[in-house]
Design a protein around this nucleic acid. Structure first.
Lengths: 152, 152
DNA sequence: ATGCGTGCAAATACTTTGCATGCCC
DNA sequence: GGGCATGCAAAGTATTTGCACGCAT
């Protein structure tokens, strides 16, 4: 758990940046959230905890955290960015219900491996990836007939 | 090629919507673009062709096209949506170079199949998916030493 | 004819940025 | 003490929406 701070501190130093109390508080909060969240939610949680941190700092720090690989930016196609920390979490992908918005996380080694192979084939140096599968979850799907099996 | 219009027309009818000349022109342009594009680019191309179509109509029609499965919305994490039509194109995923912005399309049946299996396991009805792999392309990668093989 | 669609401009939503001041190293 | 960071508000993007008029069915 201390590792996250060390990593971040190291990242900041390597760029001549500083580990301020705001950044510390943001990182502390971020690693405590074991789910995805967006910038506004994070800002709200920090305020709830009595931390007075500006919206600008939250956005700025999230960018740094993404850059330092401590946080992943995920995109659910909602026109806003979600984030999740990468600690302990092996990387995971998402099943996103277009009906109720529920997000189910999963991870699959076959797909991970296959991606690496594809990158190798294209001489592409893999950094990270995002795989989102959109559809309807089992609950929202109840009492529905199938309509199309077209797109994959 | 006429099929796209039939499909769209059918989709519109099924919703009590109309096939206007604006929608026709937008669809015609969209199917002619064999690459991804964003709303502004599309608007610009239409203007170039001498079509006077408003930004609002472009955005509105793109949403209809996505809804009717003729067009796919893809997200490169740039804070804006890209689109590509789904005609003839079997679905494809993307390798995105974070350095030069180049986008390489690929498709892999193993991954496609695996996704279907995962959905089945979660009783999730698959609609569509987006898989973006970010990293550095072979050109941008030249003369670089590898630094981290951490995240996948 | 009826009602959906269009264009325009304003509104909204998310994120970034300029500037004066504050604080880490 | 110097320079990066912060907070604020304003600016910047991307996209949506209300309204009056126009056109497809």
């Amino acid at each position: 758990m201390g590792t996250a701070f060390e990593k971040f501190h190291q990242y900041l130093r390597s760029r001549g940046l500083k580990l301020t109390s705001e950044r510390k508080n943001i990182l502390k909060k971020v690693v405590s959230i074991h789910d995805h969240f967006d910038a506004e939610e994070l800002l709200y949680m920090l305020k709830e905890d009595g931390k007075q941190i500006s919206r600008a700092s939250v956005y700025r720090t999230l960018n740094l955290l993404v850059d330092s690989n401590l946080v992943e930016k995920v995109d659910f196609g909602e026109g806003r960015a979600y984030y999740e920390h990468t600690l302990g979490n092996y990387h995971h992908d998402h099943l996103i219900c277009v009906e109720c918005g529920k997000v189910i996380q999963f991870e699959d080694q076959v797909i991970e491996k296959r991606q690496k192979d594809i990158c190798k084939k294209h001489k592409f140096e893999l950094d990270y990836h995002t795989l989102n599968i959109f559809g309807r979850c089992s609950e929202c799907n109840n009492g529905r007939r199938e309509e199309d099996a077209s797109t994959s």
